[in-house]
């Protein structure tokens, strides 16, 4: 997909919403990729964390509103403690997740606990926390 920037570009509104929800400076990111290097869930992500930020910088709303990477983030902050620019990537992941949910894209799959009934509360409640509004 070609990204068209310039006057036809709608004032980076989407990027601004991410910044407001996360209180992080998107444009401080210089795309070093350290967040992606150490992310424990990256193997399952369709976009690496640094790419999520990149798409936000590009104001690429369609890419982020359909990306599944944010649902794999485990909020472990491995990225945040190592980011050379002090960006809390986990908060940006959460912001995109929130935006997707506000758009009705909440993940609807049932937790796998229904299968075996052994999940401890801590897992269940965290799961509801992260995956529902």
């Amino acid at each position: 997909m070609k990204i068209i920037l310039g006057n036809s570009h709608p004032q980076s509104l989407f990027a601004q919403r991410i910044e407001a929800l996360s209180r992080q400076k998107l444009f401080a990111c210089y795309q070093c990729g350290k967040c992606s290097s150490g992310c424990p869930m990256a193997e399952s992500m369709d976009l690496l964390p640094n790419r999520v930020i990149r798409e936000a910088q590009l104001n690429n709303e369609p890419a982020l509103m359909s990306c599944r990477a944010v649902w794999f983030c485990s909020s472990c902050f491995a990225c945040a403690v190592r980011c050379p620019k002090g960006i809390d990537i986990a908060r940006i992941m959460e912001a995109v997740r929130t935006l997707q949910m506000m758009d009705g894209k909440s993940i609807t799959e049932k937790p796998s606990c229904e299968d075996n009934g052994t999940l401890p509360q801590i897992a269940l409640i965290s799961h509801f926390r992260k995956f529902n509004m």
Binding site: Q31, C32, G33, K34, C35, S36, S37, G38, C39, A42, E43, L47, L48, N50, R51, A78, R82, P84
Partner: peptide, 25 residues
């Protein structure tokens, strides 16, 4: 990409990095 972690595994060192050009760890 910038390396996030280096650790020892047996006699080897494991380096966790990323190639942001291909978008892969």
């Amino acid at each position: 990409g910038k390396v996030s972690k280096i650790f020892k595994s047996g006699a080897k060192l494991v380096v966790w990095g990323a190639d942001t050009l291909s978008g892969r760890q």
